[in-house]
C-alpha cells in the first residue's frame, strides 16, 4: 500500500489534490479573509484570515498552488512571495494579540524565486515569520496537505505540532534538487532513501506528531478535522510560556543527533 516517492509526488502535485481553500471552506465558518502586507501588495498564494473552528476563533494561513494553469500562474504555483510572508506575519501577530491558535495549511514548492521578492527582502521576511511563530504564546499547528520545502515552508511550520497527510513531504529542498546532488549514485531515483522527507520518516524522528490517512477520500475531511482538534486540545493544556518551551524543545531535541 505504501507509495513510492514518485507516486507521492504525482499525487500531491495533481490538480485534484485537496487544497487549503477547500479545507478552510469546509472546516472554518465565518471565515474573514485579510489581504495585503501593508507595504508592497497582496500575495494571492496565501489565503490568510480568521474564522471559527468548532466555534473557537482561529487564525488561518493557507497556501494554494492552483488547480489549473491559469490559477497556477496567478498563485505562482504556491511559491509564496515576500508579500505573502509579511501578510502571514500580520495574521500571526494578530493571533498573539487576540490569543487565538494559528493553523497553517501547506502545499508549496518553496519560497518564490524572483527578482521582485529578492529585492524586497524575502530573506528577512521569511526569518521574521519563523522567529514570530517560534515566540508565540498561543498554540500553532501546521498541516502539510502536500509538500513543503526549504525555508519557505519552514516559515509556516515552526509550530507546536506538525500534522501531515500520509503522502505529504517536508524537506530541505525539493526531491528533484536532492536527486540532482545524488546524480547517478541513486539508481532507484528515490531521494527519500537517503534523507527523511516522507510523513512516515518524519514521524519516526519526532518531527511529525500525527499522520492523517488519506483513504477513503470521502471521509478525509473528518479525519483532518479530528486531527486538528486533537492537537489543539492537547496544546490547550499548556500556558503561554509552556507552549514556547515545548516548541523550542521539539526542534532542539530533533537536531541533537
Amino acid at each position: 500500500m505504501t507509495k513510492t516517492l514518485e507516486e507521492k509526488i504525482k499525487l500531491i502535485r495533481s490538480p485534484n489534490r485537496l487544497t487549503a481553500r477547500q479545507v478552510i471552506r469546509q472546516l472554518i465558518s465565518d471565515f474573514f479573509e485579510v489581504h495585503g502586507d501593508r507595504l508592497l501588495g497582496d500575495d494571492p498564494a496565501l489565503t490568510a484570515g480568521i474564522g471559527l473552528f468548532h466555534k473557537q476563533p482561529v487564525n488561518v494561513l493557507g497556501i494554494n498552488r492552483g488547480s489549473n494553469i491559469q490559477q497556477r500562474r496567478e498563485l505562482n504555483g504556491g511559491a509564496v512571495r515576500v508579500t505573502g510572508y509579511r501578510k502571514a506575519l500580520r495574521v500571526v501577530e494578530a493571533a498573539e494579540k487576540f490569543k487565538r491558535p494559528v493553523i497553517s495549511l501547506i502545499n508549496m514548492p518553496g519560497a518564490d524565486a524572483s527578482a521582485f521578492s529578492e529585492e524586497h527582502g524575502q530573506s528577512e521576511a521569511i526569518a521574521d515569520l519563523i522567529l514570530k511563530m517560534g515566540q508565540l504564546s498561543v498554540p500553532n499547528v501546521a498541516l502539510f496537505l502536500g509538500e513543503g520545502h526549504s525555508g519557505g515552508a519552514l516559515a509556516f511550520s515552526n509550530v507546536n505540532q506538525i500534522l501531515m497527510l500520509e503522502n505529504a513531504l517536508f524537506s530541505v529542498a525539493s526531491p528533484e534538487a536532492v536527486q540532482a546532488i545524488l546524480k547517478n549514485r541513486n539508481k532507484t531515483q528515490d531521494a527519500s532513501e537517503f534523507m527523511p522527507m516522507t510523513a512516515q520518516q518524519l514521524k519516526k524522528i519526532g518531527l511529525v506528531d500525527q499522520i492523517v490517512v488519506e483513504s477513503p477520500s470521502n471521509t478525509l475531511m473528518d479525519r483532518i478535522d479530528k486531527a486538528i482538534v486533537n492537537s489543539l486540545n492537547e496544546l490547550e493544556k499548556l500556558n503561554g510560556l509552556q507552549l514556547k518551551t515545548q516548541r523550542f524543545k521539539k526542534f532542539e531535541n530533533i537536531t541533537q543527533i
Binding site: 526569518a127 519563523i130 522567529l131 517560534g134 526549504s150 519552514l154 526542534f251 537536531t255
Partner: peptide, 18 residues
C-alpha cells in the same frame, strides 16, 4: 542549508531563530 543533512540542516534555521 547543507543538503546532505536534509531536514536536520533546515531545522537549524528555526532553532537558531528560536
Amino acid at each position: 542549508a547543507r543538503m546532505q543533512e536534509g531536514i536536520f540542516s533546515l531545522l537549524q534555521m528555526n532553532t537558531i531563530l528560536n
